[in-house]
Write a protein that binds this DNA or RNA. Structure first.
Lengths: 189, 189
DNA sequence: CTTTCAATTCGATGTATATCTATATTTATA
DNA sequence: TATAAATATAGATATACATCGAATTGAAAG
């Protein structure tokens, strides 16, 4: 549904993003006009105008009323209003959220080999993704000794010391005295 | 000024009329993002994303903030609002009205030879243009006998009878008993 | 200072499409 | 019914541009 809005919006914008068609719409705001009139007004050939009007009509931006052998085209203001409604940040956000964590999945694919961390990413952001994956190996309500933490990490990567420090530094885990625990999750909105 | 708005609007729409760029903006509504993140999210290569961001940035639709070696891009909502303001019927009308009667001038060029009507257009609309030109040859406040009307018309075309009848039929002139006069102009809005 | 990593720039390629001429279709008129 | 006029369609051409791989730039880290 939102992705329908999305491609709908793209199509509208593609049709509107043309100098000739905007000028046509501009003329049609004040009066209906025939193909020949528009051709003269824009200094373009009738087939070109016909082409533009077809594209505008496919999206309902103009309507056609035959009058004898002449076709009078009129502007449909409603359709333009619908475009304006879609062209807002909130709507764009909705449309984009069809997916969002493709990047995280890619990082996991790149740096994991099954349950093994192939390499600790140098980039902070990528490291954060791996650490988020790693912290899932710990229970939320359990309290661990440092040796337990190291043991669990070592199932996935030899450098337990570095990773343990990173988990604390990124606040994914917390420590008091010699006791470690996983930081309770905060809810997503 | 209005034509600057015009080409401005076309450029904005051309930049917005792209699926990838709309998705980028959609993502950036909720959070700033790096080129790599966007590339992963859209399943496109970084150079492609860079290209899109450049185009968006040229129009001020996004802003860039370097953060270490990573470039964080953010959405500039204001710029989008400006597009919405331009994408209204009134604005389109303003932009189009740089000229408007090119068609009428073309018809006159085609069917007149100086003060002589070369041929009476068969098309109703074109005939109307020629008749509007012809009726200007009459004073507004004068009352004419049929012979006078014919004489004036014959300065421009031999078939005075037909043209006289057309002037009446199109209500450009009126007749009562044997007296003719030019219909008073109604004002334009 | 060298290496590394993210971003950008460059060059190439394929696709989309605005515009034109020529032809066909449809409606009105003689 | 045949001709003329206004649109529409078909086919051709040229331009714009989205996308990619390769090379370059610029910043951070060892």
């Amino acid at each position: 549904m939102t992705s329908e809005d999305h491609s709908m919006l793209v199509q509208f914008l593609k049709v509107l993003a043309d100098e000739s068609r905007l000028r046509i719409l501009g003329i049609l705001t004040s009066r209906g006009a025939s193909v020949e009139e528009l051709a003269a007004a824009l200094s373009l050939k009738p087939p070109t105008i016909s082409h533009h009007l077809t594209r505008l009509r496919e999206l309902g931006l103009v309507r056609m009323r035959p009058e004898g052998t002449v076709h009078v085209y009129e502007f449909n203001v409603e359709a333009l209003q619908r475009v304006n409604l879609l062209l807002k940040p909130e709507k764009l956000a909705q449309m984009a959220n069809v997916e969002g964590d493709a990047w995280e999945r890619k990082v996991l694919r790149d740096f994991l080999n099954g349950e093994e961390v192939k390499e600790i990413p140098a980039s902070r952001k990528k490291r954060a993704v791996i650490l988020s994956w790693l912290v899932e190996k710990f229970d939320v309500e359990t309290r661990y000794a440092e040796a337990d933490v190291n043991a669990i990490i070592k199932r996935h990567h030899p450098d337990a010391a570095t990773l343990r420090r990173e988990l604390i530094a990124t606040h994914l885990m917390e420590r008091e005295n010699a006791v470690y625990w996983r930081t309770p999750q905060k809810q997503n909105l």
